[in-house]
Design a protein around this nucleic acid. Structure first.
Lengths: 348, 348
DNA sequence: TTGAAAGCGCTAACAA
DNA sequence: TTGTTAGCGCTTTCAA
């Protein structure tokens, strides 16, 4: 049914080897022979059998990605975007992308073991690194090629790309403080996620540097969903005294917090400021448009993928540890023009 | 480096064949031999070399999905959700999932040809079917196993799952009409998408059945993004007379339309009604919460994947053509309690 | 109950 | 410039 080298060889009247070499672009094939082979291959609609190639070359030309999902209805735009980045970069290098979705835990560990053990892919991409991340210890132990999006608290050296979350939250927090805010609450990500620590440190550090106390009840934790942002947002807004600003550790929770504020009858950007982190496409046209810390997710996808492919090819990436600077994107939700400030302070 | 059957054979002192059979669970291996082999495999951390297995079995145990993306910053939660559904179902059957992202066009066609030709996967999932969909003609011609999410206007018989978009829009439109709306605008999806036709037909049909004229300028078209929903929403709201309700062909555009209305100083659910389609997690906690037509995206992902695996196994799926009934989910954006109606009509 | 041999489709070392 | 041979790791006859 499918065309093989053998079929072409038979038709052209040469050996399989010659066909293989002609198609492989080697120059030790007579011009005329090559021409006939190429033509036959063309006419017969030949495509190399990738599996056979992989077995021979001991190389699958495939990178793997196991997306850590929370549940079925998970749908963080963050993942779509990084997936696109990874996928496009992989395609550029003629690599395929194998994707699994697993919730952190035993199933996830097994998926890693199976993929590594079965040599299903040439390398893995680890995203959203965690504290004492066992995916990383496992991959380091097994010597399997991988690149991570996110740093680690393990004392291990591996290639990664990360965004300086501390800096990002420094900027967001300082921006709000400069607008006059004093009671700034923070909705953190679960603290087993590495980026959560960095961002929290940025928030706390900046508050303290400005001589502002960080009250325990101003720090909430949500699982990165809009729903959690909403729930925690309500709780924060119901505090006495209520915060005049809420910083969320990601955009989805910020959107939830905005809904919470609106449900409390507050005008976001005037009565209360809200900021996020990520700058997913969604928040540019939300209402109000969200002030957030931008990290170039798509671009990071392409970077980790291209680094991984370098590692697979046995090349040393120019930089093994890349820390990107995020940028604060000011929009309406933080109260452009200081409107929020005035009112917020006025109510103090 | 990696453990092979040969390694185990050598250690246990039997042939590769015997090891293969023992591990394969055949019962023509002596109990004692089997035990020793299993133990050795365990101790040595053996995992079958999937590529070698695939070559031999002529089966990759992998399904493919090529996500039709618009651009880099694409990030429709719709895709994340269906991806999760597909991925989880695949895992259940011990199948892997190969994912690519390609914009419709030449590159996409090549990706299909390459994947099919190279026998990279055992079958493909086609999502978001289009008019005269060349992916479908190609797959039918080549006899490659596939299952689609969406029907086709081609006169071809292939297995699919779809949601009755016409019915969904019937319900949404009728609901708004029953609330008293008369000037109902519609933001359609690009009409080369199959589902766009069905949904548009539902809108138009219901309007007409109720004796309401559908004015040309009330029908806008957006590329399913929030941004387009915003832009088209503004245009619609600036019409004279302005529509009192806007139906969007998907949730993302509905969110955009809501932002547009809010930027025009309108209260959505009171001054204007807005509805969507999909019921992505995002819209339950948006502000106002979105009235929408729910289609079980995650579940559809599992369905098409399990159907495909059946086809791959040479089984005939119980049902080859599944048409699901969507359900209208009423929330605030359509004006619960008829508030929108009264005010909207009042301004007529 | 076990092993030898062949072969999946391809590449590569070596010989001619 | 071309072909023969071997082999990637596995499964599967067939024979012992």
């Amino acid at each position: 049914m499918a065309v093989t080298l053998k079929d072409i060889a038979r038709r052209v009247g040469v050996s399989v080897t010659t066909v293989s070499r002609a198609l492989g672009g080697y120059d030790d094939v007579a011009e005329e022979t090559k021409r006939r082979i190429l033509q036959a291959a063309q006419e017969m609609g030949y495509h190399p059998h990738i599996i056979a190639q992989s077995l021979q070359r001991q190389r699958t030309n495939t990178v793997g990605l196991i997306i850590p999902t929370a549940g079925p209805r998970f749908s963080d735009p963050y993942f779509t975007e990084i997936l696109t980045g990874i996928g496009n970069e992989a395609a550029k290098h003629e690599f395929d992308l194998l994707v699994s979705t697993r919730a952190p835990g035993a199933q996830e560990r097994e998926a890693y073991e199976r993929i590594v053990g079965s040599r299903r892919v040439d390398g893995l991409l680890v995203i959203r690194t965690r504290c004492r991340d066992e995916r990383i210890t496992y991959l380091m132990e097994s010597g399997f090629p991988f690149v991570a999006f996110g740093r680690s608290d393990l004392d291990l050296d591996f290639p990664y790309v990360d965004v300086d979350g501390t800096k990002g939250l420094d900027e967001a927090t300082q921006y709000l403080i400069d607008l006059g805010h004093r009671r700034i609450a923070y909705i953190s990500a679960p603290l087993d996620l590495m980026f959560a620590k960095y961002r929290l440190a940025g928030y706390k550090g900046t508050m303290e540097r400005n001589g502002l106390s960080v009250r325990e009840e101003w720090i909430a934790i949500g699982r990165l969903t809009q729903e959690d942002g909403y729930r925690e947002g309500l709780k924060l807004l119901d505090l006495e005294p209520a915060p005049t600003a809420i910083i969320a550790a990601n955009d989805l929770m910020a959107l939830g917090a905005i809904s919470a504020a609106q449900d409390r009858g507050l005008i976001v950007g005037r009565d209360v400021a809200v900021t996020g982190f990520d700058d997913i496409p969604l928040v540019e046209h939300s209402h109000p448009a969200l002030t957030t810390v931008r990290q170039p997710i798509y671009h990071i996808g392409t970077m980790i993928c291209s680094m991984l492919i370098q590692v697979i090819h046995g090349e040393e990436p120019a930089e093994r540890h890349i820390l990107l600077e995020p940028t604060l994107v000011v929009r309406e939700s933080s109260g452009v023009g200081g409107q929020a400030t005035v009112d917020a302070l006025g109510s103090e």
